[in-house]
Design a protein around this nucleic acid. Sequence first.
DNA 1: TTGCTCCTCACGTCACGTGAGGTGGC
DNA 2: TTGCTCCTCACGTCACGTGAGGTGGC
Lengths: 264, 264
Amino acid sequence: VDEDLVSIGRFARLCRLTVKRLRHYDEQGLLRPAHVDAATGYRYYRRDQAGEALTIGLLRALDVPLPVITEVLSRDPEAVDRALRGQRDRLAAEIRHRERLLATVQRLIADGVPGAEVTLADEPARQVLVARATAAPERLGPVVGRCIADALAAAGDRVAGCPIGVYPLDGLETAEMPVAVAIPVAAEPGSETLAGGPVAATIHIGAYEQVPIAYHALLSWLYARGHTPLGEAREEYLVGPATAEPDGYVTRITIPIEAEGAHD
Amino acid sequence: VDEDLVSIGRFARLCRLTVKRLRHYDEQGLLRPAHVDAATGYRYYRRDQAGEALTIGLLRALDVPLPVITEVLSRDPEAVDRALRGQRDRLAAEIRHRERLLATVQRLIADGVPGAEVTLADEPARQVLVARATAAPERLGPVVGRCIADALAAAGDRVAGCPIGVYPLDGLETAEMPVAVAIPVAAEPGSETLAGGPVAATIHIGAYEQVPIAYHALLSWLYARGHTPLGEAREEYLVGPATAEPDGYVTRITIPIEAEGAHD
DNA sequence: TTGCTCCTCACGTCACGTGAGGTGGC
DNA sequence: TTGCTCCTCACGTCACGTGAGGTGGC
């Protein structure tokens, strides 16, 4: 049995791992050497531990986190499946996320970092029906979609304009934020008033994932001219999924600012 | 002008960043406050710094690293383009990498972590023509492809078998490793002998990116039976890109082991 | 006086890689 | 005796988030 023990370097070569990684797995309790010399601290592994070490190597090559691998090594047969399915979902989400970022980068390369097309306007107040919700930023799309559907259903055939999303400007992109969707309707009981007033506005053409580009342009423009946002941003979905592909969506973004005279 | 200075909290709200991030960008020299109160250490920003802060926020949302953003803020117009193209390439590479991992995970979910189909064999020695190169693991595919093409060209119509890749087993997946491709030919001047002997062998069916699964199975099998690899691994490309789609590739992997009698 | 804002440490994240400085075994 | 292997710290990575503990301004 003693013959069966190998040093850490030899074991690392057998398992195609590094010595440093094996020491790390020892510290983390993932894979303990079969024997540690009390005097020297030398680690010795049994050859039959190579199976576990190989499994660690395979799963790490697939980017499975060490705590998940720990569960897999517990020999619970369901743990393997859970780990693999979890990793599949994680990888799929990471790919989707990066594909969205890539699309935005491609757009910035093609069109340049946008600057100018900002206009000042005086928005009229409107009567609207409102659907509200809260959403984490990555869930914003579906949540707003549902709000739009709800509000449209409530408005029925009294719809008098395209949906308007209302978003806090100081939402920090991290936590849940409150969102609202307003549908313009003829004045009637149950409707609310969406305040009017002076705004800075820009038009965004393209998928909703690239809306941050438009906010960047709009806010840069504002600050360069000494304006300060006075409230929530609004997005008017002039052309959306009902009638176009993402590249053709048209969204008008407005941010309320102080009245022209008050400014200087 | 003094009116123009805002506290860090207010500035953070204007730029949709956190106070912590602004302090971090100050420390890193990315975005210095226009004024720091000597007595209290309070940071004050000019409103017209909001443009730079917004740009940092946009680029960070695209996962551009801070050192690259520093270059962008240098106002070199080419720097923006370099940064965006660099980020595009980085994102594309990350997506490709994860897609490969995902395919491997999917396969493991579908087929289970493989175990058994390992056989012992006694390989004959062969006369071969050899092409050699070194490759980082992520460049392995194209490099081996070129070696195969070179070796096949050298062999001409004397080809007497499918290509055989030869790989060190202690390549640590990190650095450059030497690779060789051997093409069996009729004995002739200029040919080398590829040694024969006892091996453990398994068949891998599917894309080359999933070959690590087969190595895991093969090595686990070996170690569970007390065998030790005695040299380099070989891959016989029985069915490859010339005649099939990746899912249909057939590869025979062998690892030399000690002779049967020597083992116990 | 009460909140709110701001400050500076210090630590944690994730899975190691990279030295520094020293010892053990054939 | 010479290399080679092995050991334990300690630090760096990347861009922050999360407290702890304390102070300044209306």
